[in-house]
Design a protein around this nucleic acid. Sequence first.
DNA 1: TTGTATGCGTTATCAG
DNA 2: CTGATAACGCATACAA
Lengths: 333, 333
Amino acid sequence: MEENNTITIYDVARVAGVSMATVSRVVNGVANVKETTRKRVLNVIEELDYRPNAIARGLASKRSTTIGIVLPSFTHSYYSRIIIGIDDVARMYNYNILIANSDGDPDKEMALIDDFAAKQVDGIIFMGDTMADSVRQRISRLRTPVILAGMIDPEEQVPAVTIDHRQATVEAVGILAKNHEKLALITGPLVNAINTERFDGFKEALEANHRAFSELQVIETKYSYKAGMKLVDRVLAMGATAAYVTDDEVAAGLLNGLLDSGVKVPEDFEIITSNNTIVTNYTRPNLTSIDQPLYDVGAVSMRFLTKLINKEEIDEKTAILPYRMAIKQSTRQ
Amino acid sequence: MEENNTITIYDVARVAGVSMATVSRVVNGVANVKETTRKRVLNVIEELDYRPNAIARGLASKRSTTIGIVLPSFTHSYYSRIIIGIDDVARMYNYNILIANSDGDPDKEMALIDDFAAKQVDGIIFMGDTMADSVRQRISRLRTPVILAGMIDPEEQVPAVTIDHRQATVEAVGILAKNHEKLALITGPLVNAINTERFDGFKEALEANHRAFSELQVIETKYSYKAGMKLVDRVLAMGATAAYVTDDEVAAGLLNGLLDSGVKVPEDFEIITSNNTIVTNYTRPNLTSIDQPLYDVGAVSMRFLTKLINKEEIDEKTAILPYRMAIKQSTRQ
DNA sequence: TTGTATGCGTTATCAG
DNA sequence: CTGATAACGCATACAA
């Protein structure tokens, strides 16, 4: 004898002696409900412990009060930090978060976007290194608003919140160029938009500082601590005495790899990394880094998304947030 | 002139010249559809780019193919690792993940559980340090299955997947007791179940190794790197020469704090930590740790949850996974 | 201020 | 093997 406990708006209506429409009104705080009946309904809701069914509500209203997040990794400190910003603002606006890991694979990204669309999310925050054409097309056909966090769309079609990575790279490399002839750029895949920006900034800074550039100075790598550790030989072999690294985990790996090989940092080798996440504090020496406002990137993205969802006017399609340099121990000053 | 693009099952039915019931059947792979009509319908679906509305489906079927995750922090390496395990299995079973941060606050935990229930999640994975009575009560009233990951319910009412923290602590402290008279336990709040287990293990190990115990050897702290760094003076003041730490971030902070104070690890001070997350590799020396199968904790939890959702038989309410010791550089061997 | 009726896009039951 | 049709639980336009 399965008892069906589900308490619906009809139950409340019946007990309160009103119509279900009235119950719906008080639940949604809609105007024009007499104070006495409002209270009566509220009491019954309390009494019956009624909870509106968000699914039914979503079907009727076409809004799910849920947003979707696509990201390339659950563990990477960069994205974790952004998520906190997203979460705080999402909570303020009463959105729940549907989250999914794409591994940075465009096919998975597309599948996840479709998935989210099917679940009727009100908006999507997309994170990654780049925006594949296939993904951009999918997004453009969506009626659901999408915003990029911590990256930009090179085609500038999709709204985005990020920092100026090219300029930040110029600044970071400029610091290293003071004390060094031969610099290395250690970056994620150059097919990715965010990294081509950095690549451009790297070259620009070398030129501005009258340093030679060759492709050999550029190392592409996966974003992981292990990958960073394995780079030591290559970096030393090319004769570099300083490196700009685009990822904190990789930088930590490179640093520890160098230390384990007896190279002193910053005396014999200087490192600047890019995200200033907590990882940069774990190492000794800790890592000088571009200081991106990652929390803000998340918070602004989410706030931005609420505007898109509500079809509010927006001034700029892309928000470029300011960054700083966090000078720590892996540079000599 | 708002064009309503939404393509429903009716559109497909009309174009394919069948009833919507038949379309529903082919979409859901239900038996008894003639092969020719199946193909015809499939073609139309492709042609119209029809996507089933998961919300409507959820309302009609009472299943959302979504699970909820409650956790105390987005950034903590411990939970991130568990999430990967959850995600992999969730993906296998085609579940999406609704995730929310409780900050470990029971009130928020309750609110989030209600939220998830309202969104009709098919199951909930709950993470934290402990299970407040209020939360347990809420859970017990839910018709939605809940499972605890990386923790247990002291009352053993809620199913759980974790390791034997008491026993692991006994082992870890036993290692430290070999070389040291005075040991410190650095733990999260002792009001939390997981930590009382460790506390018991700590005392047990001291006794077994004929070491004195006093409350002064126990330091309660927040789970953060900064909190760990600030502990140096207290730890040294109590005369401890070794510490068992229940959290990797805290252990990393303590280690770096000691190093910054000129204390040599492991020569002058030994440390064992508890989670063997990637953080233990970032430090130099890297950290000896209990090696919990965190990925498996997540994966098993999710698999377990699918069984509860499908009302399959389960042998044990609680799964205790095996752990190892990962001996690294913060102990002398 | 309140109630009635309809629709949201599916699933699922029951006939045929 | 297929088609009607009734839920699912709520929001909302329209009446009253």
